[in-house]
Amino acid sequence: MPVSRLSEAFAAAKAEHRAALVAYVMAGDPLLETCAAILDALPGAGVDVIELGFPFTDPMADGPSIQRAGIRALKNQVTLKKTLALAAGFRAKHPTTPLIVMGYLNPVETLGYQAFATLAAESGVDGAIIVDAPPEEDRDLRAAMQANELALIRLATPTTDARRLPKVVEGVSGFVYYVSVAGITGDKAIETADIAEAVAAVRQASGLPVAVGFGIKTPEAAARTAQIADGVVVGSALVDVIAQAHETGADAAQAAAAFCQSLAHAIAQARQEPSA
């Protein structure tokens, strides 16, 4: 029951009175085998949910870090199918940590919605985030995902107003990803106070956990977000840590794990301390 793997992860974090740590890595970055080692290290480093990006030549909502990661992945000839194979390898070793794939629609269209959903389910994937498939355009994909008990996670943003929110949360499952700034991934530091209210509204409208991402780069920022969100998503900063380790000849999996541990630790402490 893949959707429940997501629910259980968020429920477990909640039981521990903390936010879940959601970590994004790009499939096949910096190398296919290194990426497998990174994925393997994440659950032990306190990561509750894994977002595995699949590359696209034209990532129009991503900032420089994830753009570069996508280019590296494409150079390594990573495809959507190879991304799902990577997920399957992870699932064989880690039966409980939820893993969702994230990317753009065209590779999914090319594979076919049905084929994608079937293959994703067979690979032990729990859901997907498709950045350029807003509610207006995701009906057929959502049906294919639902038929395979997979979550199609929607994005809510600061521009999603009260009039639009019901449309965004209609038919959602898993969790809702709140994009905390209007902008591209990794763009700016976030203002926690601005988003607390929005997160509460999305949580109430969807009845699901709300993970907050975009612009969370440090343990301190992760801790501030953890005080108001059910999940904290770290993407660009982790991708940069991996890239830097790879470039300097360090162990990328170890570097990724160390960075995630620092985030997980900060998140675990966040609600024990009085809010600033």
Binding site: M60, D132, P134, E136, T160, D161, V179
Partner: peptide
């Protein structure tokens, strides 16, 4: 055709 954009842009496009 259609409107295949990130959610951030949807309200603006509407």
């Amino acid at each position: 055709g259609g409107r295949f954009v990130a959610e951030t842009l949807m309200p603006n496009i509407l």
